[in-house]
């Protein structure tokens, strides 16, 4: 292993603590760092505080495994299959999870403030929403929001507190050995989340020599020093999509949802989480499955995917 590369086991051991505040890259059904998250479950991490905007199975699988204490999010759903994501919905209805709701823009601006070294960001969104109503204090000393008049124009704005998670995990198509990151397709808020976090781990489909990724610096989105460790993780976003390489996996989503609805999530974890990645790959359908999910190089997705 060269440069910042470490194994997934080592990465989770080194960077995730019980009670960590943590943010994941991706968006609902797309490019979540799932291999890293499964390793977090295997290592029994708990009491996590997850910051997100549009989460999906990334947060949901951790909630199902009992690893999450609190979620500050805007959305938790697997858009095509089930909304909200089933473990999250269940935990919320049973009052087992602390939740702070923001809008997607609000959540993004919180990361932006964190990335800019500012304590808050003003916005014109969420005004009039119950998300800016009582009963939504963050904690004893923390405020969820603050309403004020703009000192220059007098108009009403909301101030949203910076989000600076202990750790951000981003799954990228490519990373250089030194940590320079290249993401294809939508970046969602991944670059902002990474810059806001105190430490960053990037899992990637492919690790390139640093000088090779630097041949196209206009296409990179994170400078090497923002990234503390990199992990090689082919198909690491499965069952979510990874633009240009593979599509989301409808079969697996159905298995996931069915397991939760039939109260057999423990069996799901046993079969798909408490296994090494190589074995996971076989259990989800192996080479044949990946052929079906493989993205068309022009379209960026699998056009004949049965979904």
């Amino acid at each position: 292993m060269k440069g910042k590369e470490i194994s997934i086991t080592e990465a989770v051991k080194k960077f995730v603590n019980d009670g960590s505040t943590i943010a994941f890259g991706g968006f609902t059904q797309n490019r979540h760092p799932m291999s890293f998250i499964r390793e977090m479950i295997r290592q029994g991490k708990k009491d996590l505080v997850v910051y997100g905007h549009s989460s999906g199975i990334d947060l949901d699988i951790l909630v199902g495994a009992g690893a999450v204490k609190r979620a500050e999010i805007a959305y938790v759903g697997d858009e095509q299959f089930v909304t909200p994501s089933p473990n999250f919905g269940k935990a919320a209805e049973e009052g087992k999870l602390e939740i702070q709701d923001y809008s997607n823009y609000g959540a993004t601006l919180r990361f932006l403030a964190g990335a800019m070294g500012l304590p808050f960001m003003p916005a014109k969104t969420m005004l009039g929403s119950d998300m800016l109503k009582s009963g939504s204090d963050k904690g004893k000393s923390e405020k969820k929001f603050h309403l004020m008049e703009c000192p220059f124009t007098g108009e009403k704005v909301v101030l949203l507190p910076a989000a600076k998670p202990d750790l951000a995990i981003i799954h990228a198509q490519m990373v250089g050995e030194g940590g320079t990151v290249m993401i294809y397709g939508q970046k969602f808020a991944d670059d902002i989340i990474a810059k806001a976090a105190k430490e960053v781990v990037v899992t990637a489909e492919e690790i390139l020599p640093e000088e090779q990724i630097r041949q196209k610096p206009a296409l990179t989105c994170l400078p090497f020093f923002e990234v503390d460790a990199i992990v090689k993780s082919p198909f690491g976003a499965h069952p979510t999509s990874c633009y240009g390489l593979y599509d989301y996996d409808p079969d697996h989503y159905k298995i996931y949802v069915k397991a939760i609805k039939s109260n057999s999530f423990d069996e799901y974890l046993e079969r798909y989480v408490y296994v090494e990645h190589r074995e996971y790959f076989e259990r989800i359908g192996g080479v044949e499955k990946m052929e079906r999910l493989r993205a068309d190089p022009v379209l960026g997705y699998s056009p004949n995917l049965k979904r």
Partner: peptide, 17 residues
């Protein structure tokens, strides 16, 4: 402790505002 939890705002509140 809701009877039914929905996915949350996502971008809906932003669009509405």
């Amino acid at each position: 402790c809701p009877e039914v939890r929905f996915p949350g705002s996502g971008g809906a509140c932003d669009m509405a505002c």
